[in-house]
Structures are given as C-alpha cells and as structure tokens.
Design a protein around this nucleic acid. Structure first.
Ligand SMILES: NC(=O)c1ccc[n+]([C@@H]2O[C@H](COP(=O)([O-])OP(=O)(O)OC[C@H]3O[C@@H](n4cnc5c(N)ncnc54)[C@H](O)[C@@H]3O)[C@@H](O)[C@H]2O)c1
Ligand SMILES: NC(=O)c1ccc[n+]([C@@H]2O[C@H](COP(=O)([O-])OP(=O)(O)OC[C@H]3O[C@@H](n4cnc5c(N)ncnc54)[C@H](O)[C@@H]3O)[C@@H](O)[C@H]2O)c1
Lengths: 204, 204
DNA sequence: GATGATGTGTGAAATATATCACGATTGATT
DNA sequence: AATCAATCGTGATATATTTCACACATCATC
C-alpha cells in the first residue's frame, strides 16, 4: 500500500536522526524507544512505521541502524537522483541553491531560471542564471521532472501552468499560495509563514 | 477550547487566500464552497473552522470577508506585535530577514545575531549583526519572547538551551533537528527538507 | 407573500492516526 | 538450561480529524 505523507515524514526524521547520531558516535543497533525519546514520538509508532517498510527488529536488541537507514533510503528513493530546476533566484531561491543538505536525498538542481533581465546570464553558486523563456525547452530537453518554485506569489500559477504543460511531475512550492495542477502532478507546499499561525497564537 | 494546530494552519490559509483575493478584486462576501474550492478543502471544514472562532455566516450569502479576516487576525493575535531575534545570519537567515511578508502577521525582527567574528558588526538588510555573546543580555533587556533559529544544526541544541534559560517563550526552528525544551516553550519546526520525503517518494 | 435555489450549522458517521496492552522473542544472568 | 528483563510485533482501543446528511435560514423571483 502507498505510504501516507505522515509516515513518509516520520521516516525522514528517523533517517535524519540516525544519520546525525551515527556521525557523532557510531552505533550498531538502536531501539524504538531510543528513537521515540529523541524525536518525541510514541515507540509503538516507530515500530509500526518500520514494520510498514518491511523492517524487522530483534527482541531485546532493537534495530540494525545500518538496515534502517538503507531501508528508508530505498523506500523513499533517496539513492535515485532527481534532476530539478529552480525558478526564481531571489533571496530564498538563492539560499536553497547553495544548501548542500539536499544532495543526500538525491536532489540535484540542474539549472536555475529567473525572469529578471538583470539576473539572466549572471552566475550564482556555480550556476548560470537562465531566462525563463528557455524554461520549457530545457525541461523537455533534459526530461526534468521536478521544479522548485521561489518566485513572487503573483506569478506562481502562471508558471505552474507552464510547468505542467511541459509534463513536469512535481513542484516544490515555496510561494505562499495554493496551486492548481493536474491530478498526476504532486505539489508539495513549503508555506513557511504557516508557522506563524502556531507561534502567534501561542504567544498571545 | 484551545484551537488545534491543524485548525490554526487552515485559518492562516483562509486569511491569506482572502487577502490575496480581495487585493485583486474587492468582494464583500464569500461562501465556504468558494474558499474550499480554491484551497482544496471540504466546505464543511471551512464552516466548522469559522464556527470555532465564533464566525456566523448568512444563509444563501456566505460570510463577510471583512469579518472573517478580522476574526482570524484577532484570534491568531496578528495585530499584536511579536518582537523576535534571529540567530544565524547565513543564507537562510538572510533570506528570512529581508522578507517583508512576515510583518502583516505581527512578526517584528528586532535584532540579529551571529557568532562569526567576520559578520559581527557588519550590516545586513538594515540590521547590525550582533555577537551571540550579547544574546542573553539583549533578550532579557528587551523582553524578547521569540527566537528564529537559522544556525548550523550542530549548535542548535546548545543555543536552544541558552535561549530557554533566558525565558524565551517560542522558537521558530529552521535547523533540521529536534530540540529539547521545557514544556512551556513552543518549538515550531520548519523542517524544509521533510518536503523531499513526499517528493522523492512520488517521483520514484 | 409563496416558492425555489443556495448556503449555513451541526450531529452522526466515516476515516485516519496514535496509543495501549500483551504475547512472543531474544540475550544476559545464574 | 532455566529464569529474567528488555524489546519487538500487532490486534484492540482510543483519539483526532474529516466528511456526510439534512434541518433550517436567507435571498431572488414571480
Ligand atoms: N524570503 C523569505 O524568507 C521567504 C519566506 C517565506 C516565503 N517566501 C516566498 O518565496 C518566494 C520568493 O521570495 P524571495 O524573498 O526570494 O523573493 P525575491 O524577490 O528575492 O526573489 C524572487 C525572484 O523571482 C524572480 N521572478 C519574478 N518573476 C519571475 C518569473 N515570472 N519567472 C521567474 N522568476 C521570476 C525575481 O526576479 C526574483 O529574482 C516568494 O513567493 C515569497 O513569498 C520567501
Ligand atoms: N539554506 C537553505 O536552503 C536551508 C534549507 C533547509 C535547512 N536549512 C538549515 O538552516 C540552517 C542555516 O542554513 P544556512 O544555509 O543559512 O547556513 P549558513 O552557513 O549560510 O548560515 C549559518 C549561519 O549561522 C552562523 N552561526 C554558526 N554558529 C553559530 C552560533 N553558535 N551562534 C550564532 N550563529 C552561528 C554562521 O556564522 C552563519 O552565518 C542550517 O541548519 C540548515 O540546515 C537551510
């Protein structure tokens, strides 16, 4: 069965936690309780999630860290590279561009685009910024399936329409708006300012 | 009763949608179905959420847009300013710093801090970058209740401990790790790379 | 002012998600 | 090798969240 979004996100957290932990101190095995403790999750939940991706623990011992990491990378497809384009090389786009942390999940930003004539042609973080006029062509030529959207919100839907017309399969949307896409295109929204809802409410 | 996180996030989305919509074309009223359609939510959900914050619609008409926006801002505390400090003026911190979009939710970044001697004293987006050595003092002096954390993940917990010891009330955490805090401190995680779990899995 | 179409408000039902409870399994200890 | 304690796997249970279904309210129209 298809794994649900909540499960996928927890798997990602397990993976990250195990990576960070083993980098500091190599360990062979870990128990569901230890992971649960660190991530503030119920131990049962951890075992259920592991069970869902076919992991088997050993009574009295726990799970092989190595196995867990491998299984997660496998299920999530982190070892499979995803070529992506980034659109909108502004403040946020620029930050994402230089971030080395995405690589280990298979994300490969292949090219970056902007509509600003003052930016097109310039270099940034090793990329030459391309004109959005060449976007469609590029996506088709290189068979790009993922786009990272960091443009002003006003142009989000227009760009989305252009993207989906090229046959793009997923959009990582950092612009604060909902996008309309065909059913087979995945939109993952990274609506950063939603965080303020919880924060402002709590501080009130 | 306390509003749940999911409700708060939807309220934020309603508010954003209504702001964006009325900016383009002023309208007096809107129905739950219209909002639901645009945001891909069930209309009943919209009505329940509105009901939860005391909003009453009118049969055959819908809701007064003005009222909805006001009620949400009121409930969420967006009209109440939240003074914050930002820690870690790097790529991501720099982007957040210059983003004008947070202001309308009451977020006021008052000061920014970094530990890098090469950055301390320099100016960025109208702020003079302060040394983290002066962080505690500043928070206490100005009674800051919110910190935005954009440092490398290795120092997240150390900084968090220092922050909580000053009596900070909330942390907006952009570093990819779980933070341990006292029960009365809210941590809102903006774990951007979690998005890759959904995306990578979908593209596989 | 009756009628119909369109919306709201909300209890009930359905679905999704998280937690509990406990037998089964394993490794350490005696 | 028998016992014990720690840990897993998982069905049952509890909780949270969403959706359905429908009575009631409102406005436009005739
Ligand atoms: N910066 C932040 O901290 C932050 C936080 C939350 C959300 N966001 C959202 O992220 C998006 C980008 O924010 P930013 O701060 O980087 O803005 P920015 O203005 O710095 O960057 C936007 C970039 O998009 C380019 N652009 C404009 N129209 C374009 C088009 N049609 N095609 C291609 N490129 C185009 C601009 O030239 C610019 O380089 C915005 O939607 C913003 O709301 C940003
Ligand atoms: N840049 C991105 O797109 C991105 C995406 C996802 C997550 N993140 C996370 O956001 C955080 C910041 O990322 P970034 O790309 O801005 O990194 P960066 O290296 O550009 O910035 C980090 C800043 O923190 C400062 N710093 C280091 N130690 C500090 C300390 N003890 N006290 C105060 N400041 C300190 C550094 O001097 C630097 O200015 C990281 O945890 C990263 O994992 C970034």
């Amino acid at each position: 069965m298809q794994l649900k979004r909540v499960v996928l996100e927890r798997l990602m957290r397990y993976h990250r936690f195990l990576s960070q932990t083993t980098k500091i101190k190599p360990i062979q095995t870990i128990t569901s309780a230890q992971i649960a403790e660190a991530l503030d999750i119920d131990p049962t939940q951890v075992r259920k999630d592991f069970g869902a991706i076919g992991l088997m623990g050993i009574g009295r011992v726990g799970y092989q860290v190595e196995d867990v990491c491998c299984a997660i990378r496998q299920v999530m497809g982190f070892d499979h590279e995803n070529a992506a384009v980034l659109i909108g090389v502004g403040q946020l786009g620029g930050a994402l561009l230089t971030y080395p942390g995405f690589e280990k999940y298979g994300l490969m930003i292949e090219a970056v685009f902007d509509s600003d004539p003052a930016k097109v042609g310039r270099r940034k973080a090793g990329y030459t910024i391309r004109s959005t006029r060449t976007l469609k062509q590029y996506i088709r030529n290189y068979n790009i399936r993922l786009a990272i959207l960091c443009t002003p919100v006003e142009v989000s839907q227009t760009l989305t329409d252009r993207l989906t017309s090229t046959g793009i399969k997923a959009i990582w949307n950092f612009t604060p708006t909902s996008l309309n896409v065909p059913a087979d295109v995945l939109v993952r929204n990274e609506h950063i300012s939603l965080g303020l809802s919880e924060i402002a409410y709590h501080l009130k």
